[in-house]
Write a protein that binds this DNA or RNA. Structure first.
Length: 594
RNA sequence: GAUCCCAUAGCUCAGCUGGAUAGAGCAACGGUUUUCUAAACCGUAGGCCUUUGGUUCGAAUCCAAAUGGGAUCACCA
C-alpha cells in the first residue's frame, strides 16, 4: 500500500539489475513545487555504481520503475533528479479507501504502556504561564502517543510538602484572620498564593533589618525570624504535629479545588496523581541497594553519594549526613515505585530544561543500579516562556497567571465573535462554549506550534490575534466544511457521503490535498517519535491553508456536475475529519459553526 | 571555570535523517465580496540562513572553532 516503500524496493532491484550493485541510500522525497512530479529520487548517490552521467542514470532507473510499477504514470529527469509522477488513479483509489473514515485508530490490546508525567505543581501558588506550556505539552504528547498506538497513563506529581507550603501557612496564620476562599471570594490556589507573597514581603523586611544590623545578605536570609519559624513549622509537619497537619490539609484542599478548576477549563486531566507527602520518604531502600552493589559510597560524615566524574558529571549526594534524603533520592524512589505499579515500557517526564542536568543524573544512576527499564525513561525538556519585557519572576509580579490568561483569551474571543456578528441564532450556552473553544484554542495552538525544546516568546498581543497561523483560522476552515455539508443535506440529495462509486478527473489542488491526507500518518508517527506536538500543529495549519485556497478557487456546491459536487464534498468532509483529529491531538476543540 | 541548549525576513516561527530558485504568519503597501461563512483569498516588498574553517558532486541542514543569548553544575525542590 505504501507507495514510498514500493518505490524504494523496486529502485533497489533496478540498481541491482542495471548495475549489478545496490545502495542503502535510496530515499524518495516530495518533489519541489517548481517541478513536475510527486516524488523525487536524487541519483547522485548512485553514480559510483552506475558509472554513468546523472541524467543517463536517472533516465535508466526511471524507465525501469515505470515498467515495473503500474502506479507510475510518468517521469522526468532534471540533472540528477528523477521526478516521478504517480497516476491520479492511485490517489483517487487511496481516497476511496479513506473517504469519511476516522484517521485515528483505537489502541490495540497488546500496545506498550507509556507513562506521561506533566503539570507537577507546587501547592503554594496558582498556576502560571510556564505551567501552561508544561500542561499543554504533556497533555498533547499523551494524545499523540495514544493515537500512535500506545496505552498512555497520564500522571501528575503534586509537590504538596516542603518549606514553600509552610511559608504560605505561616503567613496565613499570622495575617490571615481566618480568611477562606468562601469569605474572600478568591479561588483557593489564589488565596494561598496571596499568603505566599505576603510571607515574602515580611521576610524581605526582616532581611533588610538584619542587614542594617550588619549581617550579610546570606546570613540575614538564614537568620530571618520568619524563615526560622517556617522551618520550625516544617519540622512539626514532619513530626506529624496535629495542628500543623490540619492547617496543611485545609490549605492544600483549597489549592486542589483551585487547580481542579484550572485543569477543567484548560480541558486536561490525569489518570493518576502522586503526592510528594506520600513519596518523599521513598528512595531510602535504594540507598542500600546502591551501597551493596558498590555504586554508592559513604563519606566520613556518613553522607552517601555517587561519583559520576567518570561520566563527565559531578559527585551527587543522595543522603545527607543527618540521614535525610534529597530531591534526587525521592525521584529515584518514585521512579522505582511507579515502575512497580505501572509496568511501563516508557516513562516521559515533562519538565523544563533547567532540569536537564537533574534528569541526566537520575537516569544514569538508575542505569548504574542495573534497572533495564531505565532505558525507557525520557526527559521531555522544554524551553522557558519569556515575555517581551523579559523573564517571568514571581516575586517581581511579572508572572502571567494561568487563570487570568485563560479569561482574557475567552473574553477576547467573545468580543471578536460578537463584532463579526457571528452569535446570531446561538443560545447563551452555545455562545459561551464557542468563545471557550476559540479563546482556549488560540492559546493552546500558540504555545504548541513552537518546537518544545526551544524557548518561546509569549507576546500577549500576538497570542490573542485570531488571524493567520492561528487556531481560529484552522477552526474557521473546519466550520466552512461543516457549513457545506449542512447545505448539501438541505438543498441537495446527498444524505450519504460515504459511498464513492464515481470516476472523476482530479484538479492539481485536489491531488495535493489527497497527498496531504496521505501524509497524516507519517506526521503522526514522527510527532510520536519526537514527542513534538509542533509537527501536528504545522501539519494541520498547512492542510487548513491548502483547503482555504481550494475553497476559494474551486466551486463545490456551485459546480454543475453532480459527480464533482459529491466528490468535492467528500474530499472536504474528509479534510474536516483530519483537521478535527489533528486539533484533538493538540487538545483543541473545533466548533461546528463560528 | 566546566557542561548543556539556542542563533533563519523588521517581529514570531517552519524548513525531517545533506539536494534543484530558503518558506509561512504578523507588521507595510496594492487588489478581490450580486455567487458555498472575508476570522478568508490573490499580489508587491522584505534574506551574506551570526562568523570562520572543514567534510561533500552539493551545506541553512553534518563536524570544529569563534561570537552573542539562555540554562545548569548544593547535604534546595
Amino acid at each position: 500500500m505504501n507507495i514510498e516503500q514500493q518505490l524504494t524496493e523496486k529502485t533497489a532491484k533496478a540498481l541491482q539489475s542495471l548495475y549489478g550493485a545496490t545502495s542503502d541510500k535510496i530515499a524518495f522525497e516530495k518533489t519541489s513545487p517548481d517541478f513536475i512530479g510527486d516524488l523525487t529520487l536524487v541519483v547522485f548517490n548512485f553514480l559510483k555504481i552506475s558509472k554513468k552521467k546523472p541524467e543517463e542514470t536517472a533516465t535508466e532507473i526511471g524507465t525501469y520503475l515505470k515498467d515495473n510499477i503500474p502506479e507510475i504514470a510518468d517521469f522526468n529527469v532534471v540533472k540528477g533528479f528523477l521526478n516521478i509522477v504517480i497516476a491520479d488513479s492511485f490517489w483517487l483509489n487511496y481516497f476511496k479507501i479513506i473517504n469519511g473514515k476516522p484517521f485515528i485508530k483505537p489502541v490495540p490490546d497488546n500496545a506498550p504502556t507509556v507513562m506521561v508525567e506533566y503539570s507537577s505543581p507546587n501547592t503554594n501558588k496558582p498556576l502560571h504561564l510556564g505551567h501552561v506550556r508544561n500542561i499543554l505539552l504533556g497533555y498533547s504528547v499523551s494524545k499523540i502517543l495514544s493515537a500512535a498506538g500506545n496505552k498512555v497513563v497520564k500522571t501528575n506529581v503534586v509537590n504538596d510538602r516542603g518549606i514553600h507550603i509552610c511559608k504560605s501557612m505561616l503567613a496565613w496564620q499570622k495575617w490571615g484572620n481566618g480568611e477562606t476562599p468562601e469569605s474572600s471570594g478568591l479561588k483557593g490556589d489564589h488565596l494561598v498564593g496571596k499568603y505566599y507573597v505576603e510571607f515574602d514581603k515580611h521576610f524581605k523586611s526582616d532581611v533588610k533589618n538584619l542587614k542594617l544590623e550588619g549581617a550579610t545578605e546570606e546570613e540575614a536570609e538564614k537568620k530571618a525570624p520568619l524563615m526560622l519559624e517556617a522551618q520550625e513549622m516544617l519540622r512539626k509537619w514532619e513530626a506529624n504535629d496535629l495542628e500543623v497537619r490540619n492547617l496543611w490539609n485545609m490549605m492544600n484542599g483549597w489549592v486542589y479545588k483551585g487547580f481542579a478548576e484550572s485543569y477543567k477549563t484548560l480541558g486536561v486531566d490525569f489518570d493518576s496523581t502522586y503526592y510528594e507527602s506520600n513519596t518523599y520518604l521513598l528512595g531510602k531502600e535504594i540507598i542500600d541497594t546502591g551501597l551493596a552493589k558498590g555504586v554508592f559510597k559513604t563519606r566520613d560524615d556518613k553522607s552517601i553519594y555517587i561519583d559520576l566524574t567518570a561520566d563527565g558529571l559531578d559527585e551527587k549526594t543522595l543522603l545527607r549526613s543527618d540521614g535525610t534524603s534529597v530531591y534526587m533520592t525521592q525521584d529515584l524512589g518514585t521512579a522505582l515505585q511507579r515502575h512497580h505499579e505501572v509496568k511501563f515500557e516508557k516513562m516521559i517526564y515533562t519538565v523544563g530544561n533547567e532540569q536537564d542536568y537533574h534528569f541526566k543524573v537520575l537516569f544514569l544512576i538508575l542505569k548504574k543500579l542495573g534497572y533495564a527499564w531505565a532505558d525507557g525513561l525520557y526527559h521531555l525538556s522544554y524551553g522557558m516562556v519569556e515575555l517581551p519585557e523579559g523573564k517571568m519572576k514571581s516575586r517581581e509580579g511579572t508572572v502571567v497567571d494561568a487563570d487570568d490568561l485563560m479569561k482574557i483569551m475567552i473574553d477576547t474571543a467573545a468580543e471578536t465573535t460578537k463584532e463579526l456578528g457571528k452569535v446570531e441564532g446561538l443560545t447563551d450556552d452555545e455562545a459561551n462554549h464557542l468563545y471557550q473553544s476559540i479563546g482556549l484554542g488560540a492559546l493552546k495552538y500558540f504555545m504548541l506550534k513552537v518546537d518544545p525544546k526551544k524557548k518561546m516568546l509569549f507576546n500577549p498581543a500576538e497570542s490573542i490575534d485570531f488571524n493567520g497561523n492561528t487556531s481560529p483560522f484552522i477552526q474557521f476552515n473546519y466550520v466552512r466544511i461543516q457549513a457545506l455539508i449542512r447545505k448539501a443535506k438541505e438543498g441537495w440529495d446527498f444524505e450519504n457521503l460515504d459511498v464513492f462509486t464515481h470516476n472523476i478527473t482530479l484538479l492539481q489542488k485536489e491531488k495535493e490535498l489527497i497527498i496531504k491526507l496521505y501524509n497524516f500518518n507519517t506526521v503522526l508517527q514522527q510527532a510520536a517519535n519526537e514527542l513534538s506536538p509542533a509537527l501536528i500543529a504545522n501539519y494541520v495549519y498547512d492542510l487548513a491553508k491548502e483547503f482555504s485556497q481550494y475553497y476559494h478557487e474551486t466551486p463545490i456546491l456551485k459546480e454543475d456536475q453532480k459527480d464533482l459536487i459529491l466528490f468535492r464534498l467528500q474530499l472536504s468532509k474528509t479534510i474536516g475529519i483530519v483537521i478535527k483529529s489533528g486539533m484533538g491531538l493538540l487538545g483543541i476543540e473545533v466548533p461546528e459553526r463560528m
